[in-house]
Amino acid sequence: MSENTMDYQHLGRSGLLVSKIGLGCMNFGDATGEPEAFGIMDRAVELGVNFFDTADVYGGPQKPDMEQGFGTSEEIVGKWLKKSGHRDDIVLATKAYQPMGLGPNDRRLSAYHLKRACEASLRRLQTDHIDVYQMHHVDRSTPWEEIWQAMEQLVAEGKITYVGSSNHAGWDVATGQMTATARNTLGLVSEQSLYNLTNRAVEQELIPALEHFGIGLIPWSPLAMGVLAGRPEDGEKTERRALQSDVYDAVADQLDAYESLCAELGHSPAEVAQAWLLHQPVVSTVIAGSRTTAQLEAAVDALHVSLDDSALDELDRIWPGPGTAPMSYSW
């Protein structure tokens, strides 16, 4: 693979340029140990990947009664930043919302929690600022006025630069953005959501909202937990096969058609799945949650896959989307 063949584009309507393939650090500290994580991040920089995405809760069990492992991913990224000296070469994104302790205010999006969560992330990441600070999930029990007051304060203090959301519905994004506009602030620049060929629910209402407000989409799980990487070959390590056996059976006919199309195109199923996302105008960067350097390199290879109208139409036929609301369900 040639070095640094990355393409870049704006994160939503912002002036910030991010690599079309982003590095997801969710596995660091869990499926991927620190030495291998360092190698993956080194390789990412070599390949021109500049968007690194993590979260305060990544790296351990995500249960409110289990604290072990919380913050491990951020800690590993922070150690690498200090050792490598690459802080100014990347766009660093993290998230807050999930439980980070046993107290009633150790979670969600209150101003109380956001302030402490951000400061704790900065300590773990060993940096003085976060480039894109994301709300990991919607919190409808906290008013948007409170959330924006907290985010504006963090921006004013130089602790964060941009604000993104994750796992928000279209009306949540619209409400949040209109509230920010009323406060004369930039508001959201990105939304990170589940989006892949097998799960296109966001096309109904979320994506139209993002397009209207100029908010970039960051898909997570682009390979549908490995399903869109195709069936494991005979003799291949069977961990993924065992994990997804029921899922493979449920979409067997679609997978047959999909794998045949990928063979005709001359690309692997994983490359085609990620290339399809890259062909969606609203997508700013696709998160590659790589557990190994080889997986990261395979994700970057998707940049070189060009899908013509015929291929895109066939992918729509195999994995149909829901259409956009309200036309998708009304006369």
Rank of each mutant, 00 (worst) to 15 (best):
N199L: 07
A201R: 07
A201P: 00
M225G: 02
P222V: 09
S221C: 13
V173D: 01
A180D: 06
E205F: 02
I218N: 02
R231T: 11
V202W: 01
S221T: 14
R231C: 11
N184W: 11
S190F: 02
N196P: 04
G226M: 08
D172I: 04
L206N: 02
Q204G: 04
T175E: 15
W171L: 07
G230P: 04
P222T: 10
D234Q: 13
T181G: 00
Q204L: 13
N199T: 11
V173I: 15
Q192E: 15
I218A: 01
G214D: 07
Y195Q: 03
S193M: 11
V202P: 00
E236S: 08
P208S: 13
G187V: 05
T181E: 15
G176C: 10
N196Q: 07
Q177F: 09
G235F: 09
P219D: 08
S190Q: 00
I215R: 00
N184T: 07
G235R: 02
R183G: 01
T185V: 15
F213M: 00
H212G: 01
L186N: 02
T175N: 10
N199R: 06
T175Q: 14
Q177M: 15
L194H: 12
G216F: 06
L186R: 07
E203K: 04
L228A: 07
Y195W: 12
A224R: 03
A229M: 09
V202M: 09
G226N: 05
W220R: 05
G230H: 09
A209I: 08
A224S: 13
P219L: 08
P232S: 09
Q192C: 11
W171E: 08
A182D: 15
V189A: 03
W220N: 05
L197F: 09
N199A: 10
A224P: 05
N196Y: 06
G187C: 05
P232D: 14
T198R: 04
T181F: 14
G214I: 04
A224C: 12
T181R: 11
L228S: 03
W220Q: 04
L188Y: 14
L188A: 00
T185P: 00
T175I: 10
Q204C: 11
S190A: 10
L186M: 06
T179W: 07
H212V: 08
E205C: 01
L217V: 06
T198C: 13
D234F: 09
P232A: 10
P222Q: 06
A209N: 02
E236G: 00
A224V: 08
D172A: 09
Y195R: 01
L188W: 13
L228T: 04
L188M: 10
G176E: 06
P219I: 10
R231L: 09
Q177Y: 07
W171Y: 15
